[in-house]
Design a protein around this nucleic acid. Structure first.
Length: 441
RNA sequence: GGCCCGUUCGUCUAUCGGUUAGGACGUCAGGUUUUCAACCUGAAAAGAGGGGUUCAACUCCCCUACGGGCUGCCA
């Protein structure tokens, strides 16, 4: 069975970058009729917060990314202990005692000499007596996985054939000095034991993947299919991490972005498929193919979400938005007409209020100097509100006869005088919903 | 510095040696709608640079430049 997972660490709110990863994994699982696991990577008790766990779930629920199972790494520590024992047993694990400062110094030296900053495996040469001495002096060391120094290759779902020389990578630390298990080990153990078949993640994990493949094999697991999608950049190509502050999912929700608009973009951006707003998740699932994504960094512009949101809203019926319309206080008999009129002229649902205000209270007129006389004449011909379906037609016909104006020269000044704006809904539909025209005096 | 990946219209991309380099979004211009929007039609718009290989290169190879990632007792 196809099994995928989204594995956020609850150290903050999730943002568009995380969403892209989550969505891809979700779509793959759903398309294959498989299982989608939400795995909370909370091995770090210092930084993990329950509040973020809840927030992540809320954000995913808002988007309809339902998971079949929740797993928490903090509840699986004994599995990691077992894996560590196994690695020791097969002699792929060794304890090292360098302090962070020492390691830092080593790296700097290597760089100065033009050498790659790879851990020199000095600890491998330590005798048991030396280890005991170091342990007594410095406490427990870290545990590193001993890489086989060979080329590690895999066929990546996005990147194609990848080959990384293990000699260019340091033996990864899997257990910290304080005994805490690190991401690389926990992730590998979980993926293997949970039967994860497809791992989609950002290309920032490419090098990890090389070492993880060796660990998986060492533990006797099956290597899943890997796909590393490119990372999102800002519109100028700058690293997105600099802008993530405004790109948390909850901020987008707060700004009025519609889930399907966001999902439609994230499910296709960076692929060869066109970005089109979809009404249903099923359509996104149906058309998704990870192989159609490119390896180059993808520019993402938050602003693109708003036209998509607007389009999505246009496709909705009153039923879909009834609560919002009702919340504005639109009387039942006017709701249908109001939504039909307003939906073409809003970007987010937040804009709805503005149009209802106009219907209820009218608006301060916008009258050009040269139109003053014309508007005065026209307003004299406008009966008192409330208005109905024929009001606009009969009024403009009368104004046309009285003034001889027609076309844009007739309608635009009237639109501005009635609504106070140059752009807006169909005037016939709008006036029918209005109660007061302020320009009438 | 080392390793990995990348670079085609403004944007996301197609092209698996021979194409008028295609599409989508955006932009612009017409049309339609008695007004806005929508819609229809059309247009402008691209192979980072330099070397090779080849009858033929966007496509394969090398170099350079640029972009992204990794190079943690983070994930």
């Amino acid at each position: 069975m196809t099994t995928t997972r989204f594995a956020p660490s609850p150290t903050g709110y999730i943002h568009v970058g995380n969403l892209r990863t989550a969505l891809m994994n979700f779509l793959i699982a759903r398309k294959a009729g498989g299982e989608f696991i939400l795995r909370i990577d909370d091995t770090d008790p210092e930084r993990s917060k329950e509040e973020y766990v809840d927030a992540i779930k809320q954000d995913l629920e808002w988007l309809g990314l339902t998971w079949d199972r929740v797993e928490r790494q903090s509840e699986r520590l004994e599995r990691y202990v077992a894996a560590a024992d196994e690695l020791r047993r097969i002699d792929r694990f060794y304890e090292a005692f360098e302090t962070p400062t020492e390691l830092d110094l080593k790296r700097k030296k290597q760089l100065n000499m033009g050498k790659p900053p790879v851990y020199d495996r000095a600890a491998l040469a330590l005798s048991d007596a030396e280890k005991d001495a170091l342990r007594a002096e410095r406490g427990n060391g870290v545990w590193r996985f001993r890489l086989d120094q060979e080329r590690i290759e895999w066929n990546d779902g996005v990147l194609g054939d990848i080959s990384i020389d293990a000699a260019s990578v340091s033996d990864p630390v899997l257990i910290r000095g304080d005994g805490q298990f690190l991401y690389t080990l926990a992730s590998v153990v979980d993926d293997t034991e949970m039967g994860v078949t497809n791992v989609v993640r950002g290309s920032d994990h490419v090098t990890n993947t090389a070492t993880q493949i060796q660990i998986i094999k060492a533990l006797g697991g099956t290597v899943p299919a890997f796909a590393h999608h490119s990372l999102l950049t800002g519109p100028q190509g700058e690293a997105l991490s600099k802008r993530l502050g405004t790109l948390a999912l909850r901020d987008l929700r707060e700004a009025g972005v519609q889930p399907m608009a966001l999902l439609s973009l994230m499910a296709r951006l960076g692929s060869s498929d066109p970005v089109e707003v979809r009404r249903e998740m099923a359509e996104l699932i149906e058309g998704f193919d990870i192989n159609r994504f490119g390896a180059a960094p993808t520019k993402f512009d938050v602003e693109d979400l708003y036209p998509l949101t607007a389009r999505y809203l246009q496709s909705l019926s009153l039923e879909d938005v009834k609560v919002h319309v009702e919340a504005l206080g639109v009387p039942a008999e006017k709701q249908e007409g109001f939504w039909t009129m307003a939906k073409e002229n809003i970007t987010t649902l937040k804009d709805l209020g503005e149009w209802w205000d106009l219907c209820r209270d009218g608006a301060a007129p916008l009258i050009a100097e040269e139109d003053k006389e014309f508007i005065a004449e026209a307003m004299a011909l406008l009966p008192e509100g409330p208005y109905g379906d024929d009001s606009w037609k009969s009024w403009t016909t009368a104004v046309k006869e009285a003034t001889g104006r027609k076309g844009r020269g007739l309608f635009m000044p009237l639109r501005k005088a009635v609504t106070g704006k140059e752009r807006g809904p169909d005037m016939s539909a709008l006036l029918a919903l209005m109660t007061v025209v302020q320009a009438r005096g």
